[in-house]
Design a protein around this nucleic acid. Structure first.
Lengths: 259, 259
DNA sequence: GAGTGGTCTAGACCACGGC
DNA sequence: CCGTGGTCTAGACCACTCA
């Protein structure tokens, strides 16, 4: 026991080990892409048992600096090119410029973006969605589910729900690529002019299934965002349900000092 | 081994156990305030080893439904009566009504709120703060550090940083209680009229020290928020650095559909 | 098949809380 | 003092990845 210097039993060994590794990442001893020492190697290097190294690795993963894959090892993330998700991303001028909000924003920060459409089709509105759209639970609505990539890694899943009577006459909304400016541009062309977007945001640890969908390490943080798109007539014509890898985003909001 | 029915090795035992307990909480079998079975008891009940129960408890804690204290046990939380932190909380009318933003908002949702001032005094501006205030690193600024409680539990720490030349002539800003409407009301009285507030928000797992300050279980999620208070003359007269227990908050933002 | 992480065991000992 | 959770050990065995 107590092989280490006796500096007070305050700090558990596994925390010390975790801090050591995290420090090596922050100071650049371990570079992005480098493999973090394997668990077996740490057992030797630090002279502790496998269980202890395991707990250290959990701490390290929680720092968000490292990406672990079963059978391969843990690697320093190339990440923190965090994307600013700012509150002006819905500017009409972006849409008229031909870009959807996501791509417009990504281009600003010079990263490669990709969108993969997972599903487009009618679904029965789940409860929270139905409430927001002002329809009955189980009503048929159009769902557009997609997965967003940034520099090759999945960072966000998003599902848009739209009332059937709104989408019925807009064939582009059933296509994988809804055209320049995205679905919001199509909606405005058909008379649904936006007044505001109301977003609610919650952060929490990822459930197992969510972690695998976004290729996150278990225990990673996700941000759950729900957005109502409200038209000038006061109607909610879209609800967007989004799940994001929290370490990939910085959210920015400008709040006017209204009276 | 494999005492359980052989329903596919897909789901680890510790996840099954965690789901079982979480389900009991959600369905009300375990009521708020009830003690979750002790680890020793689970070892017996589920016929697994202590290590496995331990991992299950980690999962359960990550759900945010349970509160664990060393030497006592784990207990079902008395609610996440989540507080809506909405973007209209800086309305001038709230301040003129005599409330600071925090208390004004809490009253809306009928919860007991308390603010405890930890420290008020000059500090050397840390880097990110200095940048935002537009002063040199190490410049003397006023720090007001406080801890917010909701229904008796700490949910948020916040530190306001203000340039010295701004606060010098406003004695109330050095008092624990800055008076009706909070520090923003005092600043506006002295000619610093607000134009907007710019908030950036990030979510991540809590570090050990943060977890203990907010009385969180390890691995819980925190939200880190930085706010610039910008006056009509374009100056940043306050930066507020806030750390929140993520499971206590739902953030709401209204984004106008500007051109 | 060699090397990696993931699950699980059966124990020891420590630290905290309350009777 | 006893029951609680927290740390740690020294193994076993499984599952994934890649050469």
């Amino acid at each position: 026991m107590g092989a280490a210097v006796g500096e007070g039993r305050a700090v558990p060994r596994y925390v010390q080990i975790a801090e050591d590794i995290v420090q090596q990442v922050r100071t650049g001893v371990l570079q992005p892409g480098d493999q973090v020492p394997s668990e077996a190697e740490m057992v030797e290097r630090y002279g502790v048992s496998g269980g202890t190294v395991r707990k250290a690795m959990l701490e390290i993963r929680a720092s968000g600096l490292v990406d672990t894959r079963h059978g391969k090892g843990s690697f320093v993330k190339a990440r923190p090119p965090v994307r600013h998700r700012s509150s002006d991303r819905f500017r009409r001028s972006f849409r008229q410029g031909g870009k959807a909000a996501y791509l417009a924003e990504s281009e600003q920060s010079g990263a490669t973006a990709k969108v993969s459409v997972i599903h487009i089709g009618p679904v029965d509105a789940p409860e929270t969605i139905a409430q927001r759209l002002g329809v009955d639970v189980g009503t048929k609505v159009l769902a557009r589910r997609r997965l967003y990539f940034r520099n090759g890694t999945p960072v966000e899943t998003a599902t848009s729900y739209l009332p059937w009577d709104v989408v019925r006459d807009i064939p582009e909304l059933f296509a994988e690529n809804p055209g320049d400016g995205g679905i919001y541009a199509r909606l405005e062309e058909h008379g649904h002019v936006f007044h505001e977007f109301v977003e609610t945001l919650q952060a929490r640890p990822a459930a197992k299934a969510e972690a695998s969908e976004l290729a996150l390490s278990p225990g990673a943080t996700v941000v759950h965002l729900l957005r109502n798109a409200v038209t000038t007539s006061g109607r909610v014509v879209e609800v967007c349900d989004t799940l994001m890898a929290a370490d990939q985003f910085v959210f920015e909001f400008r709040i006017p000092a209204t009276n």
